[in-house]
């Protein structure tokens, strides 16, 4: 069984006996996984490619439901209910649990419309309200000063790092409670990466964050908790500062000292 540190904070999410099998696979990609996620803190998921960390991340906002045939069981508790049930309202779930992807995903529209998109989906039409919230979101994403004079420009004209911050602004604009980051800096240069990491740390005052990363240094730099996954199982979840110094599991130690992966 996995070694899981006791979490003192309130819990944002709780995974219980979660098992997930892709439509095209015979064996489950995630096996009977149980894991708490602390509120208003950053939990990093690390592990070698194919360990199931991205699969787990995409289960929190039911992204897997976009493709037919995927099977899952167990529970993911969010705000006191299991979000894996058939009657779960995926639209409001996804508004409450936002996501940032491996690559910047600026929509084919202006910078302003990108950030306003989620709010417009919710029916907010009031111009002043939209303008205020777009500005605030862009400020939160440390992008306002760079784009305030060209909000009407096509978002695809921004640099990669700017686009990724735009996506973060777009996600925080709808005021989610949880944000999922799927290797958000894997397509970015070191300077943009540092900017995004700084931003993630600032955001945790308002949202609970789960970040999947290939980069152990990144996990060590930004996260409060780190979960190490291997072959679809959670091996260890610990306080980041402890886990990277004194891992409890032998597998964790081998992974973070670079013996495999």
């Amino acid at each position: 069984m996995a070694t899981i540190v006791t979490i003192t904070e309130e819990k944002a999410l709780e995974v219980k006996d979660f098992e997930f099998t892709y439509a095209s696979a015979d064996a489950p990609s995630i096996k009977k996984l149980t894991m708490p996620v602390a509120k208003n803190s950053i939990t990093a998921l690390i592990g070698p490619s194919g360990c199931g960390k991205t699969t787990l991340l995409r289960s929190f906002n039911r992204m897997h439901d976009l493709y037919s045939g995927n099977q899952y069981s167990g529970e993911i508790i969010f705000k006191g209910r299991n979000i894996l049930t058939a009657k779960e309202d995926l639209i409001s779930l996804r508004i409450q649990i936002g996501m940032i992807f491996q690559k910047p995903t600026a929509f084919p529209m202006s910078i302003f419309d990108n950030v306003a998109y989620g709010m417009r989906l919710q029916g907010i039409k009031n111009k002043t309200e939209l303008q205020g919230r777009v500005e605030k979101a862009l400020q939160d994403a440390a992008l306002w000063n760079e784009v305030k004079d060209r909000l009407k420009h096509d978002a695809n004209g921004l640099s990669g790092g700017q686009q990724q911050r735009l996506c973060i602004a777009r996600a925080v604009a709808v005021e989610p409670e949880v944000l999922l980051f799927d290797e958000p800096t894997s397509a970015l240069d070191p300077i943009s990466t540092a900017g995004i990491e700084e931003l993630i740390v600032e955001l945790k005052n308002r949202v609970s964050i789960i970040i999947v990363t290939h980069n152990m240094q990144q996990a060590a730099r930004v996260s409060d908790y780190t979960g190490f996954m291997y072959l679809g199982e959670l091996i260890e979840l610990g306080l980041t500062e402890e886990m990277f110094v004194t891992p409890k599991e032998k597998l964790t130690e081998e992974y973070i000292t670079g013996k495999f992966g």
Binding site: N61, M63, I91, T105, F107, Y117, L121, A171, V174
Partner: peptide
């Protein structure tokens, strides 16, 4: 997926 993730 990004648009679905915003509740589209």
């Amino acid at each position: 997926e990004s648009a679905y993730a915003l509740g589209g």
